[in-house]
Amino acid sequence: TEKQERAIEYIRRLGYSEEEARRILKKANGNPDLAKEIARRIG
């Protein structure tokens, strides 16, 4: 989804690889607090 793409872009800007960014997002899917934090940061 567009939100996922924005989140991946944001995480990659922090210096993670695409693969790492996707792994972090997968974790965020099972972790509402982390997901909220990422969403808050990407606006």
Rank of each mutant, 00 (worst) to 15 (best):
E5T: 09
A35R: 02
I42L: 15
E37R: 12
K26V: 11
R13Y: 11
E5A: 11
T1H: 11
Y10N: 04
I11E: 00
Y10T: 05
N31R: 06
R41Q: 15
I42V: 12
N29L: 08
N29G: 14
D33P: 02
K27P: 01
I8V: 11
I24G: 00
G30L: 05
A7M: 05
R23E: 14
Y16N: 03
I24H: 01
K3W: 09
I11F: 04
G15I: 00
E2K: 11
R6D: 14
R41S: 13
R40K: 13
I11N: 00
R41M: 13
I42W: 13
A39C: 09
I42F: 14
Y10G: 04
P32H: 05
A39Y: 01
L25A: 01
L14H: 04
E37N: 07
E20K: 06
K3F: 10
P32Q: 04
N31W: 05
E19T: 11
A39F: 02
G43T: 15
E5F: 08
I42H: 15
D33E: 15
Y10K: 02
E20L: 08
N31K: 05
Q4Y: 07
E20R: 06
E2G: 09
I42M: 15
R22T: 07
A35K: 01
E20G: 07
D33C: 07
L34C: 06
R12E: 06
L14K: 03
L34V: 11
E5R: 12
I38P: 00
E37C: 10
A35F: 03
R40P: 02
K36E: 08
R23T: 13
E18W: 08
K3D: 15
L14Y: 06
D33R: 10
R40D: 15
L34I: 10
E2P: 13
R41G: 14
G30I: 02
T1M: 11
R23G: 12
Y16R: 03
R22E: 06
R22I: 10
E9M: 10
P32E: 07
I8C: 04
D33A: 10
K3G: 13
R41V: 12
S17G: 06
Y10H: 06
E2D: 14
K26S: 11
I8K: 04
K26C: 08
R12V: 15
R12M: 14
G43A: 15
D33W: 10
K26T: 10
I11Q: 00
A21T: 05
D33T: 10
K3T: 13
I42Q: 15
E19Y: 12
E19A: 13
N29R: 10
I42D: 14
P32M: 06
I42Y: 14
T1C: 13
G43R: 14
T1W: 13
E9K: 11
K27D: 12
K27E: 14
S17T: 14
A28W: 03
G30A: 04
I8R: 04
R41Y: 09
E20T: 11
A39N: 01
K27Y: 14
E2Y: 07
I24F: 10
L14P: 00
P32S: 08
G43N: 15
I8L: 12
A35G: 02
A28S: 05
E20W: 09
Y16A: 03
R6M: 14
E9R: 11
K3C: 09
E9Y: 08
R40N: 14
N31E: 06
I24W: 04
E18G: 06
K36I: 15
R6K: 14
N29Q: 10
I24N: 00
Q4T: 10
L25E: 00
S17W: 02
G15K: 02
I11G: 00
G43V: 15
A35I: 03
A7R: 01
I11L: 05
N31A: 05
A21S: 06
R13Q: 14
Y10D: 07
K36R: 10
E20A: 14
R13S: 15
I8Y: 07
I42G: 15
Y10F: 10
A35C: 04
R13E: 14
E18V: 08
T1Y: 11
P32V: 11
E18S: 07
A7K: 02
K27H: 12
R12P: 00
A7P: 03
R41E: 13
K27C: 10
L34Y: 07
R40H: 15
I42T: 13
I24E: 00
Y16K: 03
A21L: 04
I42P: 14
Y10I: 06
Y16L: 07
G43D: 13
N31Q: 06
P32L: 09
G15A: 01
G30Q: 05
A21M: 04
R6S: 12
R23M: 14
R22C: 08
R12W: 03
G43F: 15
R22H: 11
E37V: 08
A35T: 01
Y16W: 09
R6C: 06
T1I: 12
E19K: 10
T1D: 13
G30P: 00
E18R: 07
R23P: 00
L25H: 01
I42E: 15
E5Q: 13
E37A: 11
P32K: 03
K3L: 15
A35M: 04
I8G: 01
K26E: 13
G15M: 01
R6I: 10
R41P: 06
L34G: 03
I24Q: 01
I38G: 01
R13I: 08
K36M: 15
R12T: 11
E18M: 09
E9C: 07
Y10E: 09
G15S: 02
T1E: 11
G43Y: 15
K26N: 10
A21E: 00
K3A: 15
G43H: 15
L25S: 01
R41L: 13
Y16D: 00
K26G: 08
K36Q: 08
P32F: 08
G15D: 01
I38D: 03
E19V: 12
Y16G: 00
A21R: 00
E19F: 11
K27G: 08
R23C: 07
R6V: 09
L34K: 08
E5K: 11
E5C: 08
A39E: 02
R13M: 14
I11D: 00
K3V: 14
G15F: 01
E19M: 11
